[in-house]
Design a protein around this nucleic acid. Structure first.
Lengths: 103, 103
DNA sequence: TGACAATATCGATATAATGCGATATTTAGA
DNA sequence: TCTAAATATCGCATTATATCGATATTGTCA
């Protein structure tokens, strides 16, 4: 766990917002029509719809998602021409735990 | 609670370290000889000893402590020519709570 | 294979954070 | 009131982050 990287991610409000939206993808994003059956319901959302919702450029969103992935706050899966990201609850839980106990 | 400011503070390892040291001041710092009786045991540590322990310059330490105070992760009290800082457990608790519940 | 859609990467520039040395401020005490 | 100690602030150079537009890459399908 790279706490530094995690806190850097969290020090930007748009990134925190994305993390929040991904908590309830169904309520914040349209259905992922191209996602195969066996991956649905796992919280995966493709880059494009995140991009549209944020209002910032595609390149910046892509960069953000990559930062969040490197901090292991998100994981991703490429399927066809889409890259789907979802929350990594494990890391989020551990971060809260770290603050509660080790800070 | 300005979460942005809090996470910015936490994204620097020296500042996190300071926060940690202040968790157990007795084990990490010498006794505060000039601190009046009624303030002892409250976790107050003066800037000078924090400065010595970090190994970075006095001006940088002072700046860091101020950032941490503005984020309400620390509070401080000036007594005589010394400024004593201590943890603000309330904010730290709320930060953990925020991550657990709102992130 | 050629065109297109989705995403990632590159290069550039503006803004912010890091961390220093020098100086100012505040307070205590002779 | 002069001096010294503790801390805060200022100005600066360096490095990191934010964010964009342009381009490259990857994958789909006619």
């Amino acid at each position: 766990m790279n706490m530094d990287a995690i806190f850097k991610v969290l020090s930007n409000p748009v990134r925190v917002q994305i993390l929040n939206w991904l908590k309830n993808p169904e309520t914040h994003f349209p259905p992922m029509l191209h996602l195969p059956e066996e991956e649905s319901g796992k919280g995966y959302v493709c880059v494009g719809v995140i991009h549209e919702k944020t209002g910032i450029t595609q390149s910046t969103v892509s960069h953000y998602l990559n930062l969040m992935k490197q901090a292991e706050l998100l994981s991703c899966k490429r399927i066809g021409q889409w890259t789907y990201y979802r929350r990594n609850e494990e890391t989020i839980k551990k971060t809260a735990y770290y603050i509660s106990n080790s800070l």
